[in-house]
């Protein structure tokens, strides 16, 4: 299980830039990012190298942000890679609320898949039971 940071953003020019600037100034690396939007506001969801540091600096800068548990997997970046993973999710009856992906860095042939699921702990245990290896917080820091 790893920590994802969700940040409330108003839907207007410059708000995402305010967020990235604070992360950059505090030397926080973004590993994966997705943006969910409505007509009026958005939620940025991020996986970063140091989630606790990130949430502290964001709160200090008057952002509304929170940590949520997500599970992440490294899968081979090849046809059928995601399908194989989802087959396991399906067999373990894990319900996905939302997901996003990030390609591995140059040189590796892998991709990272991040999932927000219902009943995170139980779901993760079920997937581990089927032989899958979710990433840990340390894995994320070292990507």
């Amino acid at each position: 299980m790893i920590n994802q940071i969700s940040v409330f953003l108003e839907n207007k020019p410059g708000t995402l830039n305010n967020l990235t600037e604070i992360l950059a100034n505090n030397k926080i690396g973004i590993r994966a990012l997705s943006l969910a939007e409505t007509k009026d506001f958005g939620i940025a969801r991020l996986i970063v190298d140091d989630a606790y540091e990130a949430i502290t600096v964001l709160k200090d800068n008057d952002f509304v942000a929170r940590l949520s548990p997500v599970i992440a997997f490294e899968i081979p970046d090849q046809i059928g890679g995601l399908n194989k993973l989802m087959t396991e999710f399906s067999a373990a009856k894990v319900n996905v609320e939302y997901m996003y992906a990030s390609l591995g860095s140059k040189g590796t042939n892998n991709a990272y898949m991040i999932f927000r699921v219902a009943h995170t702990e139980d779901s993760e245990a079920a997937l581990i039971g089927r032989g899958l290896k979710p990433l840990t917080q340390d894995d994320v820091a070292n990507i």
Partner: peptide, 15 residues
């Protein structure tokens, strides 16, 4: 104003 208590990562809940 959005408050930390009201905020979640789930758009559906906020809406």
């Amino acid at each position: 104003e959005m408050t930390p208590e009201m905020f979640t990562d789930n758009i559906g809940d906020i809406e």
